[in-house]
Design a protein around this nucleic acid. Structure first.
Length: 286
DNA sequence: AAGCCGGGGGT
DNA sequence: ACCCCAGGCTT
C-alpha cells in the first residue's frame, strides 16, 4: 500500500470544513452549481453566491427560464463569466434531455458544457455517491508528494492521473467518497503549494516527500503566468462590470471612458456571447 | 502542448 | 509590489 486511505478518511471525518455543499440534503443540482463555481474561484467567495443561486433557481428548469443577463448579474464578480453561461446551458440541457435531474453517468456529465474530467467525476461522486477517481490540482499535488516524493506534480494527464487515483480508491462506497473529498481537502488546507503544514497532515508518517527531506522542485521552472494588471482579462472584467451595472445599453464611447480599448474588447465579448449589441450600444445578452 | 479566460488573497 | 492560484476549452 503506497498511501494510507484510512488515514485520509479518518482525518476528513474529523476535520472537514463545514461547507454548504457538504450539508446533508444538499441537492445534486446544488453540487453541479458549486463545482462549476469552484473551478477557479475560492471557497469563501463561492459560498454566498451558490446559496443565492439555489434560493433563486432551486432546479435546473428554474435557471433555464432565466435570461442570460440575469444569470450574468447573479454571477457577479466570481470571474470567468463564461462559466455562468455554461451553467445556464447545463440547466437547459438537463431540463430538456434529463428530466430536470442531474445525470449520474460520467459520460453524460462530460457532455454538458463547462463540465470536464474533474467536474464530471466530482458530481458523480459527491452528488450521487458513485465510485470514481476525482482528481483536481490539489489531489495531484498530494499524490506527487505522498506517493512519488516530489514537490510538484508533472503536467496534468488524465491518462495517468485517473488510474493513479483509481488504484488507491477504497472499495467501500462511503469510504471512497470520503477519500476523494479528503484528498482534496488535504491539498487545499494542509498540503498547499507553498508552506505546507506537514505537522498536521494525516499522511506525515508515510509521506515519501517528507521522508526524502521535502526536496524542492528540481524540474524545469514552473511557467510564469502573465500579469493581470494591464491585461485583456482585466479589461474584459471591467467592461463586464459596467454592463452588469447598467439597466440600459451603454454606448461604445461610454464604455471607452472606463476601458479605452472597449471597441476591441467588446468584439471578443460578443464572440463569447457575453455582450450583445443593443439599441444605441451594448448590453448583456438577453 | 500551449495559451486564453477574472479576480482576490497571501507574502 | 509582486507572486500564486486553477478547470475547461480552443488552437
Amino acid at each position: 500500500m503506497t498511501l494510507d486511505a484510512a488515514a485520509v478518511t479518518g482525518w476528513f471525518r474529523e476535520h472537514a470544513r463545514d461547507l454548504p455543499w457538504r450539508r446533508p440534503g444538499f441537492s445534486a443540482w446544488g453540487t453541479l452549481i458549486s463545482e462549476l463555481m469552484l473551478q477557479q474561484t475560492q471557497v469563501a467567495r463561492v459560498v454566498p453566491v451558490v446559496e443565492e443561486w439555489l434560493r433563486r433557481w432551486p432546479t435546473p428548469a428554474d435557471l433555464a427560464a432565466a435570461s442570460q443577463a440575469d444569470v450574468l448579474r447573479a454571477w457577479g464578480r466570481l470571474g470567468y463569466p463564461r462559466r455562468a453561461l455554461a451553467l445556464h446551458a447545463c440547466a437547459a440541457a438537463i431540463a430538456e434531455r434529463h428530466g430536470n435531474r442531474v445525470p449520474e453517468d460520467v459520460d453524460e456529465l462530460l457532455a454538458l458544457p463547462g463540465v470536464g474530467d474533474y467536474t464530471a467525476r466530482a458530481v458523480a461522486v459527491f452528488a450521487h455517491g458513485g465510485r470514481h477517481p476525482v482528481v483536481d490540482t490539489n489531489v495531484r499535488r498530494v499524490l506527487a508528494r505522498a506517493v512519488d516524493g516530489v514537490a510538484q506534480p508533472a503536467a496534468p494527464s488524465a491518462r495517468r492521473d485517473l488510474p493513479a487515483m483509481s488504484a488507491l480508491l477504497p472499495e467501500d462506497l462511503e469510504e471512497q467518497r470520503l477519500f476523494n473529498a479528503g484528498m482534496m481537502e488535504i491539498g487545499a488546507v494542509l498540503c498547499t503549494a507553498r508552506a505546507p503544514r506537514c505537522d498536521e497532515c494525516p499522511l506525515r508518517r508515510s509521506c515519501a516527500w517528507r521522508a526524502a527531506g521535502s526536496p524542492a522542485h528540481d524540474g524545469p521552472p514552473v511557467r510564469r503566468q502573465p500579469r493581470f494588471e494591464g491585461s485583456d482579462r482585466q479589461r474584459r472584467g471591467r467592461v463586464m462590470a459596467e454592463l452588469r451595472a447598467s439597466d440600459v445599453p451603454l454606448t461604445e464611447a461610454e464604455l471607452a471612458r472606463a476601458v479605452p480599448e472597449a471597441a476591441r474588447i467588446l468584439e471578443g465579448l460578443e464572440r463569447d456571447g457575453l455582450a450583445a449589441r443593443a439599441e444605441g450600444g451594448w448590453a448583456l445578452p438577453a
